[in-house]
Design a protein around this nucleic acid. Structure first.
Length: 500
RNA sequence: CGCGGGGUAGAGCAGUCUGGCAGCUCGCCUGGCUCAUAACCAGGAGGUCAUUGGUUCGAAUCCAAUCCCCGCAACCA
């Protein structure tokens, strides 16, 4: 049995959960469930990144203490994942005691290894914001929020000696010791090495909302530095019990958005290298949404709330709709107006209707008793399984959805070709074979569906009398002919009622 | 000349590496069917493949230039 450790990005929770975070979380859930089905020992981590100036500022605007605010948003995230039926094994919060303790251990480790040195950070500081601002944020050289010119100031900071580790990191990426996927993202990362990459600061002086450095309590750890560390702190790094760390680290895949690949593909490996920890095996960068052609953002008022989607379509359909908009590794544009159309065509008319028609025929013609075995569709179904597995092994969640669609349309085509309603009048023996093939195909569809739409899969399989299927191994489940003749099946209720 | 990705039917995408009838899904139109959730199946209409120039018997694909969109570009994560 092999292990599979998968992580979502750790979300910066200074606002409510939105589909930008729901999307990769669902994708990771599909991969986690697939590996569990295969019998792998899976650890699936997600979490909340809760420190930093921006968080403190957002909390203040909301009239709350940072901790209070974080507690509330983290709860919303957890609720959202719960409603989306996300099967994460852990949810790490960077304000949790376990994270803070482990971060300080890891930072000390980096310091002891000589990877951290003291230096001066120079930047534009806005009095109004009480934080550094970037030049690109300035309008006419002034802070857009406060209308004042920020002062160039300098403060003591600790820096990570990134340059020392860059050649080794590059080598590992080149050699696919850290696989960067999809393949074009590897090119992009290697391209970054051609530009000058400077050491980065790991601390902040005038900020309270963060984790104090172990060797200098006047400085707070720079937020994304400790955020990246969540992938090991959640496994118990630096505690008395590092069993999980030994069992699951290195990660099999960090799934990240393409906007943060530099942090994950360069900075994080460098830190791991300095700390003497093994490298993640793969980093998969997924694409970003635009909505009706424009970037999603609160100020644009086009943010799609996952809770609303769940309310409108249900958990499984929301999972499906988000994943099926565009290929996982690419950017894509989505339109909320397409969601209903897609729900109706793929789910109501597709999977749902197919399940109804097949189980209804079994009831009508054979009073719900599975007729004699047949193997007419065996080869075609096996070929689709090969495609399905190949896609998921390569983290191509959308490929699995394609395979599911193929199974279903193979079924609908088979019904049309064989016209069971005519066979019922003319050829009982042939009818038995046809219905068996359809029921068995539906069983395969149910299994294939499980990682993507677990509740639906369970309903389909329960109607076929397959109740404890998740306890069985996938290698067995995908074999043709598991459905026993003489066993009892029942008609499925409408899995996805049509939306008008 | 900062780095990288992208621009293909009304919509969302594949095809570009390795040049050879421009494909998929949805939507639309027509026909068929009645087991099923007004579902299903078959057929059809719809594209100067961002623009311009070049290479070639032949270019969405290769080369050059231009325009537009997205991510990164030392501290927003």
């Amino acid at each position: 049995m092999s292990k599979f450790y998968i992580t979502t990005p750790i979300y910066y929770t200074n606002g409510d959960p939105h589909i930008g975070s729901a999307y990769p979380t669902i994708a990771c859930d599909v991969l986690a469930r697939y590996h569990r089905l295969k019998g792998d020992d899976v650890w699936f981590l997600t979490g909340a990144d809760e420190h930093g100036a921006k968080m403190a500022e957002t909390a203040e605007k909301a009239g709350k203490s940072p901790q209070e605010f974080c507690d509330e948003t983290a709860a919303k995230y957890m609720e959202c994942w719960d409603e989306l039926n996300i099967s994460n094994n852990d949810f790490i919060r960077t304000t949790s005691q376990r994270h803070k303790v482990a971060v300080r251990k890891l930072l000390q480790q980096l310091k002891d290894a000589g990877a951290i040195y003291e230096g001066q950070y120079e930047g534009f500081y806005c009095q109004g914001c009480e934080s550094f601002v970037t030049e690109k944020d300035l309008v006419d050289g002034k802070c857009p929020d406060h209308g004042v010119e920020p002062k160039l100031i300098s403060e003591k900071n600790y820096f990570f000696n990134l340059k020392k580790y860059l050649p080794e990191v590059k080598k590992m990426i080149d050699a696919d010791e850290i696989k960067i996927l999809p393949i074009n993202k590897k090119k992009e990362v290697l391209g970054l090495f051609k530009q000058e990459i400077n050491d980065f600061s790991v601390s902040r002086q005038n900020l309270k909302w963060g984790i104090p450095l172990p060797w200098d309590e006047s400085q707070v750890t720079y937020v994304w530095v400790e955020a990246l560390m969540n992938y090991v702190t959640a496994l118990g790094y630096g505690t008395d019990d590092e069993k999980k760390l030994e069992q699951f680290w290195p990660a099999d895949v960090h799934v990240v958005g393409k906007e943060i690949i530099k942090f994950h593909c360069i900075f994080w490996p460098a830190m791991l290298l300095a700390a003497g920890l093994p490298m993640p095996k793969a980093i998969y960068a997924h694409g970003l949404f635009t909505i009706d052609g424009v970037k999603m953002g609160k100020s644009r008022g086009n943010v799609i709330d996952p809770f609303n989607l769940i309310k409108e379509f249900g958990t499984d359909a929301t999972r499906y709709i988000l994943l099926s908009q565009f290929p996982f590794g690419q950017d894509g544009d989505i339109k909320a107006s397409q969601f209903v159309i897609q729900y109706n065509s793929d789910l109501a008319n597709g999977v749902g209707n197919f399940s109804s028609r097949v189980t209804a025929m079994a009831e009508k013609y054979f009073t719900g008793v599975v007729p004699a075995r047949d193997t007419e569709l065996k080869n075609e179904v096996e070929a689709i399984w090969v495609e399905y597995e190949k896609a998921l092994e390569g983290f191509q969640v959308d490929g699995a959805i394609e395979a599911i669609k193929k199974l279903q349309s193979l079924g609908d085509g088979y019904v049309e070709k064989n016209k069971p309603w005519e066979l019922a009048k003319t050829d009982e023996a042939r009818l038995k074979e046809v219905i068996y093939n359809l029921l068995e195909l539906l069983r395969h569809l149910g299994v294939a569906l499980w990682p993507v739409m677990p509740e639906t899969a369970e309903k389909i399989l329960a109607a076929l009398g397959q109740n404890n299927f998740t306890s069985q191994n996938f290698s067995l489940l995908k074999v043709w002919g598991l459905l026993e003749p003489e066993s009892k099946v029942s008609k499925n209720e409408a899995l996805f009622p049509r939306i008008q």
